[in-house]
Amino acid sequence: MAATKRALGLLLLVLLSGPAWAEDSKSVMLKWSQLTEDQRKVLSPLSKEWDTLRPWQREKMLDIARDYPKMNAKQQARVQQRLNDWSRMTPFERENARKKYQQFQSLPPEKQEELRKKWREYQSLPEAQREGLRREQPDLYDANELDN
């Protein structure tokens, strides 16, 4: 009787952990050394930190490698240059950027160009001035709301 119970328990264990193992066999928990040569080439800026990435982060990065061949040389160069910073952002920052990128894309071309121009102007400001601008923004959520 006890044996049957235990057997059932084991079965349950297998059932529940099944997806995780299957996932390993798919791609999500792939170690750096297990990536294909093409994937490694695209993701090379991440070689050192790859094995520390969370499963879903790896998934997203592999998606980048998948879409990479569809892009032109200029875009590819930008991807390479930005991958590192991208992987070090918090999940929230990344989601925030994704959302705003979608909004950006929904703008008419001339507005997009206007924003790009503004960004270039902003980039040309001295760092001290940019820092000043960053501090000027009002807090939307004041500390009281959190700590009372």
Binding site: N96, Q102, P108, L146
Partner: peptide
């Protein structure tokens, strides 16, 4: 999340004032 987002990004309202439509 709050700590990281204390200051809310104003893009949303800005973009709408720029005339964008966002879902």
């Amino acid at each position: 999340f709050w700590r990281r987002q204390k200051v809310r990004n104003l893009w949303t309202s800005l973009l709408s004032s720029f005339g964008g439509h966002s879902a």
